[in-house]
Nucleic acid binder design. Structure first.
Length: 370
DNA sequence: CTTAGGG
DNA sequence: CCCTAAG
């Protein structure tokens, strides 16, 4: 496996050798013509070698692992690929390492009752979404840099000057908004001729089979100091590819860290309950996951947890909340209660009332005084 | 598009 | 988390 890297052709490494890409012939491999085999972790650095793909890791494992890549700033897949990339590893080991990777990033802050499964439970057969490309890799003397950009254009003009980074030969990025990002744009700069060729591939979900591949190519000349931009927009890091079959795969579930919860509470005390977008923009700007809805949901769950201490004898539900509340640090729980009572008139009333469990719940979070 | 609710 | 109805 290791020696294989040295021999691999640069163009075939990521399957993005523009000219020889032959993308149309591979379009039907998956639902949306996206051949994941070019990914370093998707069993097979050589996309043209079928054996690799077939002998590769179990799809579900890789699928889960690819999700984790999103969390990692830089993945280097070069002469010394991370052991997790070694598709000759036994399944169990890969799983283990994948979960270790997850553990690193989530810090195993297991204070929430929410679940998290690092390896994902859905296989590529249902190939749907969330694949990540933020892998900067070097192969031989040529470096392939994957970066992100906010640009929605395909003309290789990049918006942010400040974020400019010198990148070597090939730069690719997912463009688009958030998880809807579905267009892959890559540019290649020839170091000798300073020629730059850009292509953009459209991986949006389609109802119909892909007849013609969206493959725009342009040629332009760059001045030597005109490097390619890569902004670190987290949105660009991940891409969503939904399969035709509805939403087979849900967004990767991420545990809320205590830090995030604190930010959420700060946000609520700053803007008030209900201003989820504002809270998102100000307090979760750097977290591309955590949509306003996610934040709202989390708040809702926190509220539920606080209910656990209420005289609400609701069998299992009550116990669930109780255990959820147990895992939340006391001080945070207190803040939640404070904010809750601050923004919910009926919550105070709930304290002293002995109403039926079923009807009480709705009243509580109904009103917010703003 | 943003929120609120329900699933 | 996802989906959908409302505003």
């Amino acid at each position: 496996m290791e020696s294989k890297h040295d021999n691999i052709s640069v163009d075939s490494f990521l399957g993005f050798g523009m000219e020889n890409m032959g993308i149309s012939s591979k379009m039907d491999e998956f639902s949306y013509g996206f051949d994941f085999s070019f990914l370093p972790y998707y069993g097979g650095l050589d996309p043209w070698s079928k054996q690799d793909g077939e002998a590769g890791l179990k799809p579900e494992i890789l699928d889960g692992f690819l999700d984790e890549v999103e969390e990692v700033e830089h993945i280097y897949a070069s002469h010394h690929p991370p052991s997790t990339a070694n598709h000759s590893l036994p399944e169990t080991q890969v799983k283990k390492e994948a979960s270790e990777l997850a553990g690193e990033h989530y810090g195993l802050t297991n204070f929430s009752s929410e679940s998290y499964s690092p390896s994902g439970s859905i296989g590529l057969s249902e190939l749907s979404k969330e694949t990540v490309l933020h892998a900067k890799s070097s192969c031989g003397n040529v470096k392939y840099g994957f970066a992100t950009t906010n640009s929605n254009e395909m003309d290789c003009s990049y918006e942010s000057e400040d974020d400019r980074k010198p990148l070597s030969t090939l730069l690719g990025s997912w463009v688009g908004r958030g998880r809807r990002s579905c267009r892959f744009q890559c540019c290649r700069v020839d170091s000798f001729s300073e020629k730059k060729s850009c292509v953009s591939y459209d991986f949006r979900p389609r109802k119909e089979p892909l007849e013609t591949c969206t493959h725009h190519a342009t040629e332009s000349v760059l001045s030597s100091d005109d490097s390619v931009t890569s902004s670190e927009s987290e949105d660009g890091i991940s891409v969503t590819i939904k399969s035709k079959r509805k939403s087979v795969r849900r967004k990767h579930q991420r545990m809320w860290t205590i830090d995030e919860v604190v930010k959420l509470l700060d946000g609520i005390s700053h803007f008030g309950v209900g201003k989820w977008t504002d809270i998102k923009n100000l307090f979760f700007h750097s977290s591309s996951h955590r949509t306003p809805v996610d934040i709202r949901d989390k708040w809702r769950n926190l509220l539920k947890a606080t209910y656990s201490n209420k005289p609400n004898v609701d069998e299992e539900v009550e116990e669930k909340r109780r255990s959820a509340a147990r895992t939340i640090p006391k001080d945070i729980l207190h803040r939640v209660r404070e904010l809750a009572s601050l923004y919910s008139k009926s919550l105070c009333f709930v304290h002293s009332s002995s109403r039926s469990p079923s009807t009480s719940r709705k009243k509580k979070k109904k009103k917010k005084s703003r």
